[in-house]
Amino acid sequence: MSTTPAPFSFQKKILLAIAFTLAAVGGMALISLALTWAPDKSVDELKQQWASPPSQFVDVKGLMVHVRDEGWHEDPVPVLLIHGTSSSLHTWEAWAKELKKQHRVITMDLPGFGLTGPNQTNDYSIATYTQFIQDLMDTLHVERAVIGGNSLGGEIAWETAVAAPNRVERLILIDAAGYPFTPLSVPLGFKLAKMPAMSWLMTHCLPHSMVEESVKNVYGNPEKVTAALVDRYEAMTLRAGNRQALGIRMKQLNSGGDDNLIKRIQMPTLILWGGKDKLIPPENATLFHQDIVGSKLIMFDELGHVPQEENPVVTLAAVNIFLQ
């Protein structure tokens, strides 16, 4: 006597479909994870390509800091330049190449970024960065300097001018942080770094396309972003500990918390800004100009958040006039 199997119930079909779907999604997720998996790289792995002479590593209160100290070493008032979030001293290379012909030029990777990497305390507050700049100056026997900075570096520069005005001869602010602002657009990497749920993924994976998109986001003309530039930003991000440090830094943001101090700045100040800055809007340049008596503001209508990197020739021309 033959029997026929009972028809598959509708509920079982639904469960089977869900199981297949979950398996497919999980498989795609694993594939994506494998393709974007990017473990940390040690400083020694990165040094050969990214720390060629005149790079050196200087002990600043127990932290080995990646520094370039170039040009006229007897310069009584060197030019000290500070990069922004997720950047490195390489952002100043074009400026340094020209400035060092007449000045001593000091650039560094801030703690938490570049080849310097994390500090011992996981403290990336502005107060800590301001003290770091003074400690670095002490280590390099610099009593007084022209201090310039971009974005986060700009905020550190003016905070140093407020905290230690006797050590700052002149001030150069480039798309500087300091006032509250509402971005028109935020680089994808910064967005993810602010999301606690993404912390594990961010510290183990790094899609090349995300780095490229983030760099293009801060340029006024994204077509100027080269493959070599993206490779550099990616390498600096992969430095062991930097991704964790970025997440911690994002939690310690205090945007505009000290803006009442800006009016205390009295030294000659040059304000440079990209008219296409989508991260810190050009309106903030006007605020700096209004609050710093005697300051000079130059707006570069076609440039973005990192004008010194996007067009070093035109931006440096303004700096040279200011320094003369």
Results as ranks from 00 to 15, higher is better:
157 A>N: 07
142 V>Y: 05
147 I>R: 01
164 A>S: 13
169 E>H: 12
155 E>M: 14
157 A>T: 07
136 L>I: 02
170 R>L: 06
153 G>H: 05
135 D>P: 07
159 E>W: 12
144 R>M: 01
146 V>T: 12
137 M>D: 08
128 T>N: 12
129 Y>W: 07
145 A>I: 03
151 S>K: 05
127 A>R: 07
147 I>W: 02
158 W>P: 10
134 Q>K: 15
144 R>Q: 08
141 H>T: 14
156 I>K: 09
132 F>L: 04
127 A>T: 04
157 A>R: 08
138 D>Y: 05
163 A>F: 14
124 Y>D: 03
157 A>H: 03
139 T>P: 06
152 L>I: 11
162 V>E: 06
163 A>S: 14
165 P>S: 14
164 A>K: 08
134 Q>D: 09
155 E>Q: 13
134 Q>I: 13
163 A>E: 12
135 D>F: 02
138 D>A: 11
132 F>S: 04
137 M>R: 10
128 T>E: 15
138 D>E: 13
145 A>D: 09
145 A>W: 06
147 I>F: 01
131 Q>E: 11
171 L>C: 07
160 T>G: 06
172 I>A: 00
164 A>N: 12
137 M>Q: 12
154 G>W: 02
133 I>H: 04
170 R>S: 04
144 R>D: 00
135 D>E: 05
126 I>R: 06
146 V>P: 04
145 A>E: 10
152 L>G: 05
164 A>P: 09
164 A>W: 12
126 I>C: 06
125 S>K: 13
139 T>K: 15
132 F>D: 01
134 Q>R: 15
166 N>G: 13
148 G>L: 05
159 E>H: 15
152 L>K: 08
125 S>T: 15
156 I>L: 10
170 R>M: 03
129 Y>T: 01
147 I>D: 00
148 G>W: 03
165 P>I: 15
126 I>G: 05
129 Y>I: 00
169 E>T: 01
145 A>L: 06
161 A>H: 11
151 S>L: 11
163 A>V: 08
139 T>D: 04
155 E>F: 11
128 T>M: 10
131 Q>W: 02
159 E>S: 14
148 G>S: 06
141 H>C: 10
129 Y>M: 11
160 T>D: 03
166 N>A: 15
150 N>S: 04
156 I>S: 14
158 W>V: 09
137 M>E: 08
131 Q>M: 06
170 R>V: 09
161 A>M: 11
157 A>V: 07
149 G>I: 05
151 S>V: 09
130 T>A: 03
131 Q>Y: 00
127 A>N: 02
140 L>A: 04
163 A>K: 15
170 R>T: 03
166 N>C: 09
159 E>V: 09
157 A>E: 11
163 A>G: 12
144 R>E: 02
168 V>E: 01
125 S>F: 07
166 N>V: 10
137 M>L: 13
126 I>Y: 13
166 N>Y: 13
142 V>H: 04
163 A>I: 10
149 G>V: 00
159 E>R: 15
154 G>T: 02
164 A>Q: 09
170 R>F: 06
133 I>G: 00
135 D>A: 04
161 A>L: 01
144 R>G: 01
140 L>N: 05
131 Q>C: 00
132 F>C: 02
149 G>L: 00
152 L>Q: 13
143 E>G: 00
135 D>W: 01
160 T>R: 08
146 V>W: 08
151 S>I: 01
134 Q>Y: 15
127 A>D: 11
153 G>L: 00
128 T>H: 06
